[in-house]
Structures are given as structure tokens and as C-alpha cells.
Amino acid sequence: MENANQQKLPDTAQRVAELLREIGHDKSVVMLPETGKTSAEAAAGLGCSVAEIAKSIVFRRLSDDAAVMVVASGSNRVDEAKVAAIVGALGKADARFVKERIGYAIGGVCPIGHASKTVMLIDQDLLQLESVWAAAGHPHAVFNLTPQQLVAMTAAPVADVALKV
């Protein structure tokens, strides 16, 4: 029988909750009272540091039009040159591209359950944290996991993707 809380989830967040349940993840999807579209908003709503927000940034790979997702610490800016050196030249991904290729709207892009094959990288700085919060398919929906669980769920390589200032 489904949890009553999960019945109230928006459709995309419900889909993420079901994926998490299918893979045996032990944490529920949490709905934030305010939007979690930015790392700072999500951190404020959760009472955690901005670094603990696992933000998903999507690019378009120029050679084959593939979606490239970088899951980065919320306190880091992604260095496009570092990402491009790993996966190939990148372009901007507009909202339509993200929705079509990934399956989620910007502001709620989840690291799992994509609409099509996605090239992924995980920010090595996330592995320094005990746990992180990732978007669960909706701007108000998130779920908690360890960085190791994130790596296991996505099978994405861990890389140095942060812009050093």
C-alpha cells in the first residue's frame, strides 16, 4: 500500500518516488514548502548548507546533441571547460531540450529516471559530504542520499568539474 504522503506528490515527483522505491532507496521524497529551484532556496528550506545540495546542470554536447548532466555541489560553479575536456564540446541546453531529453523541468531536474540516455558526471567535491539532497523531479521536491548512493544510482564517473576561483 502506498504511503499517503506519496499520494500527494506531483506526477513527476511521484515517478521519482517510485523509482527510488524500486531500487530500494530508504529515504522518501520530501516536498519543500517553498521552491527549491536554486541551491540557496533548497538549502534554506532544508536547513542544510548550500554545499549539501546536489544540483543538476544540463548541457548539450555539440558533436551528437546528447544531454550532458553534471551533478555538482550547490556551492560550486561548474567549469564548462573541465566538463568539455572530459565529454566533448558543449553548448547551452534550453528549457525545451532539458524537458525533452531529461524528462524534468529546470528547477526540478533529478539525477535519475531520465527520458533518454544522458552523459553524466558527478562533482568530486560531493564525496566529501556525509549526505546530499537532490531534486526529485519538481521544483519543490527533493530526496536525501549519500554521495556514494548517488554514484551507485547514476553509474556516473566522479570528476573535478568545479570552477576554481
Rank of each mutant, 00 (worst) to 15 (best):
E2N: 15
N3R: 09
A4G: 01
N5R: 11
Q6S: 12
Q6H: 09
L9C: 14
P10A: 14
D11G: 11
A13Q: 10
Q14V: 06
R15V: 04
V16I: 15
E18A: 10
E18T: 15
E18G: 02
E18V: 06
L19D: 08
L20S: 04
L20C: 10
R21H: 10
I23N: 07
D26G: 10
S28W: 05
V29R: 14
M31G: 04
L32R: 07
P33Y: 12
E34L: 11
T35C: 10
G36S: 07
G36E: 11
K37G: 02
K37T: 13
K37H: 04
K37N: 13
T38I: 11
A42E: 03
A42F: 10
A43N: 03
A43F: 06
A43Y: 07
L46V: 09
G47Q: 05
C48R: 10
S49V: 03
A51Q: 13
A51W: 08
E52Q: 15
E52D: 13
I53P: 03
K55H: 06
R60L: 00
S63A: 13
A66R: 02
A66S: 14
V68L: 03
V68A: 00
V70C: 00
V71M: 03
V71R: 03
S73F: 06
S73R: 11
G74I: 00
S75P: 00
S75T: 01
N76P: 01
R77E: 06
V78I: 13
D79F: 02
E80F: 00
E80R: 07
A81R: 12
I86R: 04
V87T: 06
G88D: 08
L90F: 08
G91V: 08
K92M: 09
K92A: 12
K92E: 05
A93M: 05
A95M: 01
A95S: 15
R96W: 07
R96C: 01
F97S: 03
K99F: 00
K99D: 00
R101H: 15
I102V: 15
G103C: 04
Y104T: 04
Y104A: 00
A105K: 12
V109W: 04
C110Q: 05
C110T: 08
C110V: 06
P111M: 12
P111L: 05
A115N: 15
A115R: 15
S116I: 10
K117C: 02
V119M: 12
V119Y: 02
V119H: 00
M120P: 01
I122T: 14
Q124W: 04
Q124D: 14
L126A: 10
Q128D: 09
Q128F: 02
E130R: 15
E130T: 14
S131K: 12
S131Q: 13
W133I: 11
A134R: 02
A134M: 07
G137V: 11
H138T: 14
H140L: 05
A141Q: 04
A141G: 13
A141L: 12
V142Y: 10
N144K: 14
T146Q: 08
P147R: 00
Q148E: 01
Q148V: 00
Q148N: 00
Q149P: 13
L150Y: 01
V151T: 03
M153Y: 12
M153L: 12
M153H: 11
T154G: 08
P157H: 06
P157G: 09
V158Y: 11
V161R: 07
L163M: 13
K164T: 15
V165S: 11
